[in-house]
Every structure is written in structure tokens, then in C-alpha cells.
Amino acid sequence: MSAQTPAERKLSASLAAHESWANTKNRAARTANARAAVERKFLDAADGDPVRAEHLRKAHFARLALKSAASRRKARDLTNAARVAEAELEELGGGDAA
């Protein structure tokens, strides 16, 4: 078999993951251990207090949401800056002829 490019490896892995999940009859059972481990992590961090563990879990996911929003805002700003730069380049007669 020939060496795969990074893009081909990514597609191959994606294909395998989709086939694996398609052949999984009980998805909840397949992920039960992982979900229990995450809940245990928060409970351990809260010294066994389920109320504190729930707040830690909510804080964790709120932190992820905040990072995601910042990332989307940065991507939007960079895309807008690229559009402005391309428009300026086009006005100056530069850019791709294609």
C-alpha cells in the first residue's frame, strides 16, 4: 500500500469512525465508561459533593463555550480583514487574473 497524505489519512480515519458508529447498536452503552469517568472527574474535584460537582461541570462547559465564541469571532474578523485586503488589492489592479 502506498503512503497516504495527511488529507487521505484524515479521510480514512473519518470513514472508519463512521463505519464503526454505524455498526454500533447501543451508542449509549459504548460511551458509558467515558461519561462516567468525566462525571467522576468533577465529583473528585468537588471532594464528593454532587452539588459542587455540578457547578464545576457547568463552569467547565461555559468556559468551553466562551473559548468557542472567541475563536469564531477571531475567524470572522480575520475573514473580514482578508476580504478588505483583497478588495484593496483588486482596486490597485493586483490579485489573481483567474
Rank of each mutant, 00 (worst) to 15 (best):
K74M: 07
A98D: 14
S68C: 02
A22T: 11
H60V: 01
L56P: 02
R72F: 07
N80H: 13
W21T: 12
N26A: 07
G95P: 03
K58I: 08
R72K: 15
G95H: 07
A87G: 07
E88Q: 12
L15G: 04
E86P: 00
A75H: 05
K25N: 08
L43Q: 04
E39P: 00
A13P: 03
A62W: 02
Q4T: 05
R40V: 00
A45Q: 09
L56N: 03
L11A: 14
E88G: 06
T79A: 15
A82L: 11
R72M: 11
D96I: 00
A87F: 12
A70P: 00
A75S: 13
A28W: 06
A34Q: 15
A16R: 13
L66E: 15
M1R: 08
D44N: 14
L92G: 02
T24Q: 10
A98M: 10
F61L: 12
K58N: 12
K74I: 08
A22M: 08
L15Q: 07
R40L: 09
E88M: 11
R72G: 02
S14R: 08
A28D: 11
A46L: 06
A81E: 15
S71M: 09
A65T: 02
V51G: 04
P50M: 03
T24C: 09
A59K: 15
A70D: 08
F61E: 12
A45R: 09
R83M: 13
A82K: 12
A75Y: 08
A29Y: 03
V51S: 05
E8I: 03
L66I: 08
R76Q: 06
H18T: 10
G95E: 04
K41L: 08
S14E: 11
D44F: 06
F42W: 03
V51A: 09
A45D: 02
P50I: 02
W21Q: 10
L78S: 09
V51L: 04
D77N: 09
A34D: 09
N80V: 10
E86V: 01
A75L: 12
L11N: 09
N33F: 10
K41R: 14
E54F: 03
H55C: 07
L56K: 00
A75G: 05
A75K: 13
S12H: 15
A37I: 04
A65W: 02
L11E: 12
L89V: 05
A3L: 15
K41N: 14
S68E: 15
E54N: 10
R83K: 15
A7S: 11
G48H: 05
T24S: 07
A87V: 09
R63S: 14
R30P: 01
S20I: 06
R76I: 05
K25L: 12
D49I: 04
L56A: 00
A82C: 04
K74C: 05
G95N: 05
A22I: 01
R76W: 06
R30V: 10
L56S: 01
K25C: 00
A37T: 05
S12F: 05
F42I: 00
S12Q: 15
E90R: 14
R83G: 06
H60M: 02
L15Y: 06
S71T: 08
L11R: 14
D44R: 11
K58R: 13
P6N: 04
G93P: 03
A45M: 11
T79K: 15
L66H: 15
A7W: 03
A36K: 09
A65I: 01
A32L: 14
E90A: 13
G95R: 04
R40H: 00
M1Q: 06
N26K: 13
